[in-house]
Computed example of a mutant assay.
Amino acid sequence: MSIPVTDRGRREDGAPVGSFVTLVGNPRAGSRTRTVAEAAAEAVGRRIGHDGPGEVVDLAALGPHLLAPGPSAGVEVALELVAGADVLVVASPTYKASYTGLLKAFLDRLPGGALTGTTALPLLVMGDPRHALAVELHLRPVLVELGAHVPTPGLAVLEAQIPDLDEVLGRWADRVVPQVAGALGEGVRA
């Protein structure tokens, strides 16, 4: 499914395509979580006519600064990018049946309502299918609490599915794109 685009940044109906940001809560740089998250953002973006990869906030590089007592320019820029996103892919590996403490520490730095007008797409990468509900039970509520519109379903990707990622992402994106496009078309962030 693809929504036609007539010119850069506008769909056929004249609505803006919106800014895409991918937030990766894995403490390891170059993680599979980042790979999956970027591919998920691209799969959704391509279907709604977003051209370009969007911004990526990889918390692996910001971890030491998140709990520092003083301000950090890198953290502040990351918070602004996330709060200003029209579409935000929020990804984490599954740690102890939930998302990482690193991601929680970052999200805790956002003020209440900071994601109002943002369409957030929660994503967890996991080793065990028993954790598949964690994306809906743990990650979705914090995004909603911050004011985000969160289409269903969130994405739970098993590590064993990564070789078939295009197929997994295609099915998921086909389900959430109408909701994302509807939110952008209604001017959620406008």
Rank of each mutant, 00 (worst) to 15 (best):
R109H: 14
A40P: 13
L88W: 00
S19R: 13
V21G: 06
V24T: 13
G170H: 00
H138N: 11
L133F: 05
R32S: 15
V135R: 02
I48A: 11
P111W: 03
V56I: 07
L110D: 10
P122Q: 05
P64D: 06
S92Q: 13
R171Q: 11
F106D: 12
H131F: 00
L146S: 09
L81N: 03
V89S: 03
T94F: 01
G9F: 01
R11K: 13
G52K: 05
G9L: 05
L62W: 01
E186N: 10
H138A: 14
A39R: 09
T119E: 04
P53W: 03
A148I: 00
A43E: 08
L23T: 02
E186Q: 12
A29L: 04
L102C: 02
G18D: 10
R47K: 03
L184W: 06
H131G: 02
E76A: 09
R34Q: 13
V77P: 08
M1C: 11
L66S: 05
G14M: 13
H50V: 05
D128L: 04
L155I: 09
D164P: 08
A73Q: 08
G70F: 11
E186R: 14
V57C: 12
G74A: 11
E167Y: 01
A61D: 11
R8A: 13
A83G: 07
P27R: 00
V142L: 04
A120N: 00
A173K: 12
D13G: 14
G154V: 00
T119W: 04
D128G: 03
A40T: 06
P141H: 08
T118E: 13
V57L: 14
G74E: 15
I3T: 09
T119M: 00
A183E: 05
G25Q: 03
A39H: 09
A39V: 15
P53E: 11
V150W: 10
S72Q: 07
R8E: 14
D58Q: 05
R130W: 12
A160Q: 13
P71G: 14
L67Y: 12
M1S: 14
S2G: 15
A160P: 09
R47A: 15
A97L: 12
R175F: 00
G101D: 04
D86V: 13
V44Y: 01
R171T: 14
E167H: 04
T33E: 05
A37W: 08
Y99Q: 07
V90F: 05
L59S: 03
N26S: 15
M126N: 07
V5C: 08
E12W: 04
H65R: 03
V144F: 07
P4M: 11
V57P: 10
V44W: 02
D164M: 09
K96H: 06
S31G: 12
D13K: 02
L137S: 06
T33P: 09
L23A: 14
G63Y: 01
V180F: 14
P27I: 03
P151F: 06
L158F: 02
G49Y: 03
A61E: 12
G113Y: 09
V90A: 08
E38A: 13
R130Q: 10
R46F: 06
F106W: 01
E38V: 08
D86Q: 10
G84T: 02
A97S: 11
V180D: 15
S2T: 15
R10E: 15
D108H: 00
P53C: 05
A134T: 04
A83W: 06
V168Y: 00
G101H: 05
R47P: 10
P53Q: 08
A37T: 03
V144Q: 15
V75E: 10
V75P: 11
L110Y: 04
P151K: 06
E136S: 04
